[in-house]
């Protein structure tokens, strides 16, 4: 026993994580209800995780309305995260949303560097039930893949069973995953466990993600 010795987690490490949510009209009904329930679960799960609650930082973006990208939750530590209510109306400007997400991630990394905060490679989750309605989505998809190749971000495109996976696959070199039965609850439990693992990744290691129980690679 070493008298008076205090062990305190002094790391100021962060895992920046953007969740880009589809709030278009087609999500109305069961999909949006399940999504909102899923977000509440994400809040609970992250807050219950001692390490992730302090290291994971979230930015929630919604695409919808008149080709809008709305910041639902600005950058916040997971411990302070409060699940927003997502509304379903309007179009699916996915390309615009991805552009905003990539820009936000770069700005946030710049802030970390200015404040001498160490960070993990950022993650971007794209969750949609359809296909982009904006014109420049292909350029945005290229930018996302390019950013992945340069090690700037890890992109996880996730679509419901109705989503256009041929298009979604273009947003990441790892390909998209199909969410089964609108099971947003399981998706957000997995997302919480994944970011928790990601926030504790050791030197020169890849993050080992939990197995996916909520979906599959689309055929």
């Amino acid at each position: 026993m070493i008298k008076d010795l205090i062990l305190q987690d002094n790391t100021n490490q962060r895992l920046p994580c953007v969740v880009l949510l589809d709030g278009s009209t087609s999500m109305d009904g069961k999909a949006i209800d399940n999504l909102n329930q899923g977000l509440s679960i994400l809040e609970q799960e992250l807050k219950a995780d001692d390490v992730a609650s302090l290291r994971v930082q979230l930015l929630l973006l919604r695409i919808g309305g008149h080709s809008d990208v709305e910041i639902l939750t600005d950058w916040t530590d997971a411990i302070d995260f409060s699940a927003p209510q997502v509304e379903a109306n309007g179009t699916t400007p996915l390309g615009k949303g991805v552009n905003v997400a990539l820009r936000q991630l770069e700005d946030q990394k710049k802030k970390y560097r200015q404040n001498q905060i160490t960070y993990n490679r950022p993650w971007l989750f794209i969750i949609t039930d359809g296909a982009p309605t904006d014109l420049n989505w292909e350029r945005a998809a290229e930018k996302a893949v390019e950013a992945e190749k340069k090690g700037k971000v890890v992109v996880f495109p996730i679509g419901t069973e109705e989503a256009d996976f041929e298009i979604l696959n273009k947003f990441s070199s790892r390909g998209a995953i199909m969410l089964n039965n609108l099971d947003f609850k399981e998706l957000f439990v997995w997302l919480s466990q994944s970011v928790s693992a990601g926030s504790q990744t050791e030197i020169n290691s890849e993050t080992q993600l939990p197995a996916i129980s909520w979906g599959a690679v689309p055929s």
Binding site: D4, L5, I6, L7, Q8, D9, N10, T11, N12, Q116
Partner: peptide
């Protein structure tokens, strides 16, 4: 180092 350093200095309570 996570519990021996604080803001690029020794964590004195450690």
């Amino acid at each position: 180092t996570p519990f021996a350093l604080l803001n690029d200095a020794p964590f004195l309570e450690f």
